[in-house]
């Protein structure tokens, strides 16, 4: 999952270098962090305890840690996380590791505000311990290095939240798309597919696959594809409609294209489409009538007393 986020966020060596420069995470900082390792190991327990005291003491965050076992588990993760700050490296593997932490928070629904707030507490405890342990000059320099890597970490965590959210939105869009491409059985062996909204190449592919499956499933002889609801028919959309038409023909059925406006007619002709081989109508109603006629059926107006 984190590997995917690395891609979604376009996090490569270039981005890493740029971000490190901006957050001022220098090699000197990394060396200092590495030298603080034994300090960190000594105080891990106390720092992690203080951290969870805050989280468990607040009703809205306490509910994320349901039982004793879960708390024990996250405390262990937290210790690892804390000590990794003092690994003295800041490469793509480090970033990937940090993305995993952000992703885990996102997964359990822990909002960024709690993450950021809890981190403040973290720093508070670290600062206390630093000034207790080292002379103030050294403590101040150490604190600065820790702050830099911590802010760097936070920027990645926030990115992960955003990437995860974008993914959720993407999934919803996909669901909406599928819903927006229904195939309706209008009569025995006659299907209607009204297309509504923008058609990109992904959706064009889904439309073709879905339609072909239904044609065979229903053994449909005619498929009316209504494109009145498609705002723009450019050459790409026209091409995908032609491909769908060709594929339907290869199954042994026919497409009737309806809802063709003047601009669409122009596009199709300018594309050099062989219109003589296609059934097309301006309006959906005409398309349904044509399909019935081709199927050997007629709609009769009883008031006017048409042919039986």
């Amino acid at each position: 999952m984190h590997a995917r986020y690395l891609r979604t966020l376009k996090f490569d060596e270039l981005e890493l270098a740029s971000r490190r420069t901006f957050f001022r995470v220098t090699d000197e900082d990394l060396a200092r962090l590495a030298s603080l390792r034994s300090f960190a190991e000594k105080h891990t327990e106390a720092i992690v305890e203080a951290f969870y005291e805050l989280l468990l003491g607040h009703p809205e965050t306490a509910k994320f840690f349901s039982d004793e076992l879960a708390v024990k588990h996250v405390k262990k993760l937290q210790r690892d996380y804390f000590l990794q700050l003092f690994d003295g490296r800041c490469d793509l593997a480090y970033v990937e590791n940090r993305l995993r932490v952000g992703a885990a928070h996102e997964r359990i629904g822990l909002a960024p505000k709690w993450y950021l707030g809890a981190y403040r507490r973290y720093l508070e405890v670290v600062r206390e311990q630093l000034f207790k342990t080292f002379p103030s000059d050294e403590a101040r320099a150490s604190m600065e290095s820790i702050t830099r890597i911590v802010f760097f970490d936070m920027s990645i965590a926030i990115d992960t939240y955003i990437a995860a959210n974008l993914e959720t939105i993407g999934r919803h869009q996909l669901a909406i798309r599928e819903l927006s491409t229904p195939v309706i059985r209008v009569h025995e062996r006659i299907l209607l597919m009204p297309l509504i909204g923008t058609i990109d190449s992904l959706r064009a592919n889904q439309i073709m696959d879905a339609l072909l499956l239904r044609v065979v499933e229903e053994q449909a002889r005619f498929v009316i594809v209504d494109i009145a609801g498609v705002p723009v028919v450019d050459t790409k959309v026209a091409d995908s409609l032609l491909k769908t038409t060709a594929a339907v023909r290869m199954l042994g059925a026919q497409v009737i294209l309806t809802g063709i406006s003047a601009p669409i007619a122009r596009t199709l002709v300018q594309l050099g489409v062989d219109v003589s081989s296609m059934h097309t109508c301006a309006r959906l109603q005409e398309g349904i009538e044509l399909a019935l006629q081709l199927a050997g059926k007629v709609i009769v107006d009883r008031e006017k007393g048409g042919a039986p």
């Binding site: 491909k243 060709a246 594929a247 290869m250 199954l251 042994g252």
Partner: peptide, 27 residues
């Protein structure tokens, strides 16, 4: 030609092969 499967039709068309001069039927 009868009984071409949906995935076969989709694949041929995507490759740019539409078998224009052949007749087809569902079954």
């Amino acid at each position: 030609l009868v009984g071409m499967r949906p995935e076969v039709a989709a694949t041929l068309v995507r490759m740019g092969y539409t078998m224009d001069d052949v007749q087809f039927a569902l079954n």
